[in-house]
Amino acid sequence: MSGLKDKKKQRKEFEEIALVHIDSLYRTALYMTKDEQEAEDLTQETYLKAYRFFANFEPRTNCKAWLFKILQNNHLNRCRNKSKVSFLEEFNEINPYCFQLIQEEESNPEKNFFKNLSSKHIRRAIEDLPEEWRLTVILADIEDYSYKEIAEVTKFPIGTVMSKLHRGRNLLRKKLLKYVKEEKLIKE
């Protein structure tokens, strides 16, 4: 590859294979950084790095997973320069079956969990998750990633992915319940 024409062709290819996933990457970046400006920077950084190493990308493998890997790396590098990700002990001891609570909440017609659940609650609950759980939940529940794919992106063994995902989901549901209840209390 040398001439500008070849480069243009390469850009087109990159746009078709990689740039189409920009919303997934931006979303993930946003929920990870909790800051729109940082999410934009992180997305751009990820894509430019990917473009520079586009030659290393094997055409038949999963491009989105490759991009997520770069994103995760960049994000960790940025975090290392800031404060260390906090991992609170209390999160380790959560009732593992909290969808039962949601179910109870939902089955009570006066309460009606889903009706009271808003985007604001969801965004807040996602962003409140400990970072490592957050990423597994996002990849599984938004991007429909398999455990194997999540393991590949996060570099955790599959068993770890499963336990992080399980705990992350439980905590997310617990938080959603809490926020919905809190808001209802304020309204009443």
Partner: peptide, 18 residues
Amino acid sequence: LLKQKTPFYVKEEIKNEM
């Protein structure tokens, strides 16, 4: 969560930088 879309200028900026 899927409602969240990338601001239009981010893609443009990436293309320019490429």
